[in-house]
Write a protein that binds this DNA or RNA. Structure first.
Length: 887
RNA sequence: GGUCUAUUAGCUCAGUUGGGAGAGCGACAGGGUGACAACCUGUAGGUCAUUGGUUCAAGUCCAAUAUAGGCCACCA
């Protein structure tokens, strides 16, 4: 006999099955006009990265969706790839070089450094995608892409040129975010703002004419060397006379004007603001309005420059200390105030970002943002959960131009060429032979590279071949859904959307399915510095990939964070184990001693009540689960599969069918085998997206459709079950319900009376309505409640005193236990039951007495309520009568 | 300052158009029963944060409040 191994050990088959799928081409997606496409493009993990729990969650969700749609008959493409991660990789490679050679990256020079970077990429870049296979990701590896591969590079250059020619990319000397450690510019999205403990210093700027002057507050005194004016609100009476005059910048002795501008808020501070356009974005704008000079007083490593006089060369914070001390000594410091100050920090190295004047490339955002805004406002693109559309829109409503140049080497080099002679800028996909303006041949390419996110923005279509008009692009674009964490909506989602509209004329996907973070057991963010991260590979090693996947996508709700709790993954593993054992049971009963399949047969007229019941349960399960999947409610879908398998199939159906399998009615055995197999197969299908490995392994041990072979015969290619609306086995379901009610009641009595589980019992069932039902299901009651004999009595029968009783809907059950009945305990038990029923009756009657309810509630609900009332009243009457007879 | 989320059993969390409160883990009691001790059977445990409102009906919708957290923001 061939069967599953005695114990569930995922290591025995997970890798083997993955290899069979991959080599068999099970993940390959083809352009097939007869099928509908389903496309997910994987958010490319950084090549510097290692697989962490966040990836595991993100990818599991994508894989569940992909496998499900594939089974539904879509041509399902899940396209994998990785991101070059400009800053992160450059820092990593530079550090490695420094460790190995002791030399700074600049000593190697651009060419040499890039050689090392590519070598690093070749060695480690594939690491993470290999780890994805452990998770069971069913992505089409043949289409694996890299943001810096040739076609992606082409796409980046093409996009840049297109935008430049439209005038939507420009170069300008503007105030940008500068990281003094990474020594590169950053976009607004790459700066993290935090409130930190700081101070306001109030300094007096004396009037040039010898008057008192004006006092201003600042949190950044070291930028005073760049002060160019003092601004006050035009309506501010206090300073009316000073507007148009000048004040003296203390110690520096430079004369600066007092100007009137709407920007200062008279209510705040002293109502007067120092204007330092080179070091503050607001001041920069004030400066633009008044056409003021710009003085930058810092170097690109955040040390002070010559404008800081004797402080030149000092770090910005050292300078601050010394400068404040000097001002205080000179009597200009009026007062200080403790204050929480917002500080911007680099999202990579966490240094304080310095606003600096710099010559950079920008993308003009106003026009690009419009279709991206419309996409969500019009409902073309939907966020799941919906609330994230607000986050997205708010960001777009006041989006500012995007600084895209980075002073790095690793990345897409900006396709702009400068004429060394005349300074002409040429933007082209290759180095021009000569300058189109002066004709000379001395041109130099821009030294900078593009923001990593500039290339990620094209990912939904650059991976499909854009700018070429490929069949893939035509078929698989737009993608159906993007699965991602809420943390990169700004970095990535927004930019993909406007790029998608610009390049493809349509949104990149229909849905953005947003998930939360995986936190540690205490709810903290998993991070390297805390050392609290859980390695998914270790988890898989311990519990199996299926358990990890199931744990990650059940018990969660879309968009909310979840915690990694070892007990939860253990529970998922136990579920796999349960399925494993139940399947062993089924497989065992389908074979003869010699391993040949025993006959099975579908014969509707021969179906027993429990067969019809489980078929109906399965059918309704299919409907529910499919609906939940459509709504991205994977947690609810997964939860239901769990219940179907464990509660319905294992706890009830298998137990009910056992007697038949061990009996000798051959015709009936065929039917039982059929249902046992059919339902298990359906459940395996429903579970497969969540737990692909174990379900595939079990599938291989079940009888197969002989028309299919190879990968096509595997579960991964099986059809998703279809709900059959015409199925109606309610009569059988009701009978099974009665059986289950009686079984539970007897089990309860057994436990309460402390009768040994092994002790056979006889029971009396008193009923008028369930007589035939009980006759039909009596074997189940006998088997599952360990009952020898069921005595059926009519409604006028008086239950014996020396019995323990229970009341269910439509029947009373008595278990005579002369040696065990504790009359006091029995009365106590029944009294509790009575109280419970009384409160039910009261609740229902109150509801029915409410005219509002009977008049306004839907008729079927009122009817249901009436029926309940009758039921509870009858049960209550039975309990009361029983109590009377005991007293 | 704006905005979003969370508050449900001892713990971690589900609860989908409003219609009798659920799971897993843990606790307690019992059990080697023809796949399963990674199991089975039974039991206990909750004014669904608070206060109002809408409704015949609110864990679910609305408004405030409290507590915790997230995101955004140019307050000198």
């Amino acid at each position: 006999m061939k069967n599953l191994a005695k114990t569930y050990n995922p290591k025995d088959f997970e890798d083997r099955i993955y290899e069979t799928w991959e080599s068999g081409g099970a993940f390959d997606a083809e352009v097939d006009k007869d099928k509908k496409p389903f496309t997910i493009v994987m958010p490319p993990p950084n090549i510097t990265g290692q697989l962490h729990m966040g990836h595991a969650l993100d990818q599991t969700l994508q894989d569940v969706l992909t496998r499900w749609r594939r089974m539904q008959g879509y041509s399902a493409l899940w396209l994998p790839g990785s991101d070059h991660a400009s800053i992160a990789t450059e820092v990593k490679v530079a550090n490695e070089l420094r460790e190995k050679t002791g030399k700074d990256k600049r000593e190697f020079g651009r060419e040499e450094f890039l050689k090392h970077a590519w070598a690093w990429k070749e060695e480690y870049g594939g690491r993470i995608t290999k780890q994805c296979r452990k998770l069971g990701d069913s992505c089409d590896w043949k289409r694996e892409r890299f943001t810096m591969d040739e076609t992606c590079n082409k796409a980046v250059v093409k996009f840049f040129i297109n935008l430049y020619e439209k005038g939507w990319i420009y170069k300008g000397n503007r105030l940008i975010n500068w990281c003094p450690d990474c020594k590169t510019s950053l976009s607004d999205a790459e700066v993290e703002h935090e409130d930190e403990h700081g101070k306001y210093w109030y300094f007096r700027y004396p009037a040039a004419d010898g008057g008192e002057g004006i006092t201003v507050a600042t949190s950044r005194p070291e930028t005073m060397f760049g002060d160019i004016a003092i601004a006050v609100h035009p309506s501010d009476e206090r300073y009316k006379d000073l507007v148009g005059k000048t004040v003296i910048l203390p110690i520096v002795e430079r004369e600066i004007p007092v100007i009137a501008d709407e920007y200062p808020d008279p209510e705040k501070g002293t109502g007067a603001v120092k204007i330092t356009p080179a070091h503050d974005p607001n001041d920069f704008e004030v400066g633009q309005r008044h056409d003021l000079e710009i003085i930058s007083c810092m170097n690109d490593d955040a040390t002070m420059n010559e404008y800081a006089g004797k402080y030149e060369g000092m770090d910005r914070y050292e300078c601050r200390k010394a400068w404040v001390a000097d001002l205080d000594a000179a009597g200009f410091l009026v007062k200080t105030e403790d204050m929480e100050i917002p500080v911007g920090r680099c999202y990579r190295c966490h240094s304080a970002v310095e606003p600096m004047m710099s010559d950079q490339w920008f993308v003009k955002m106003d026009e690009l943002a419009k279709p991206a805004i419309n996409a969500v406002e019009s409902g073309r693109m939907k966020f799941v959960p919906e609330r994230f559309s607000k986050v997205y829109l708010n960001w777009l409503y006041d989006i500012r131009d995007w600084c895209i140049s980075r002073q790095l080497w690793w990345g897409h080099r900006i396709p702009a060429y400068y004429c060394d002679e005349c300074g002409e800028i040429v933007v082209a996909d290759h180095m021009p032979d000569k300058c189109p303006k002066c004709g000379c041949t001395h041109l130099t390419q821009d030294e900078d590279v593009l923001d990593t996110w500039f290339s990620s923005a094209l990912w939904p279509f650059s991976t499909l071949g854009w700018p070429e008009k490929t069949a893939d692009l035509d078929y698989f674009y737009p993608n159906n859904v993007l699965v991602t964490g809420y943390d990169i909506i700004f970095f990535w989602v927004v930019r993909m959307v406007f790029s998608g509209y610009e390049c493809m004329g349509d949104a990149p996907y229909d849905y953005v399915f947003v998930h939360g973070l995986v936190r540690d057991e205490q709810g903290r963010k998993m991070s390297k510095s805390l050392g609290n991260g859980v390695d998914p590979l270790e988890s898989i090693d311990q519990y199996g990939a299926d358990a990890l996947r199931f744990m990650l996508c059940t018990g969660i709700s879309p968009g909310n964070d979840t915690r990694y709790i070892p007990k939860r993954i253990e529970a998922a593993r136990n579920f796999a184990n349960k399925l494993w054992n139940a399947s062993r049971f089924t497989i065992m009963n389908l074979q003869a001693e010699d391993g040949s399949w025993l006959p099975m047969e579908f014969n509707e007229s021969a179906l027993k009540d429990e067969d019809k019941w489980i078929l109906q349960v399965a059918n309704e399960g299919v409907k529910y689960i499919t609906e939940q999947m459509e709504k991205f409610e994977l947690g609810l879908a997964g939860q239901r599969v769990y219940e179907l398998i464990w509660d319905y199939y294992c706890d009830w159906y298998i137990e009910m069918v056992k007697g038949r399998l061990y009996g000798d009615d051959e015709a009936d055995k065929k039917v039982a085998r059929y249902v046992l197999t059919k339902v298990l197969k359906d459940f395996l299908k429903l579970l497969h997206p969540f737990m692909p490995f174990i379900t595939e392994e079990i599938w291989g041990f079940l009888p197969q459709d002989s028309s299919k072979s190879g990968v096509d015969a595997m579960l991964i290619k099986a059809d998703w079950p279809v709900y059959e609306p015409s199925m109606n086995y309610s009569d059988s379901a009701k009978k099974i319900q009665v059986a289950m009610d009686i079984i539970k009641a007897v089990r309860n009595i057994r436990a309460e009376a402390e009768a040994a589980p092994s002790r056979k019992l006889n029971i009396i069932v008193k009923t008028d309505v369930h007589t035939s039902a009980i006759e039909a299901v009596s074997s189940h009651i006998k088997n599952l409640a360990n009952v020898t004999n069921i005595e059926l009595k009519g409604g006028d029968f008086a239950l014996p005193d020396d019995a323990m009783t229970a009341v269910i809907d439509g029947a009373e059950i008595a278990v005579p236990l002369d040696d065990l009945v504790d009359k006091e305990a029995e009365i106590e038990r029944l009294t509790k039951e009575k109280a419970k029923l009384e409160s039910e009756v009261e609740r229902v009657e109150k509801k029915l007495a409410n005219k509002g309810f009977t008049d306004k509630a839907p008729a079927h609900l009122v009817e249901e309520e009436r029926a309940k009332g009758e039921k509870y009243k009858e049960m209550l009457a039975n309990v009361v009568a029983r109590l009377e007879s005991l007293k």
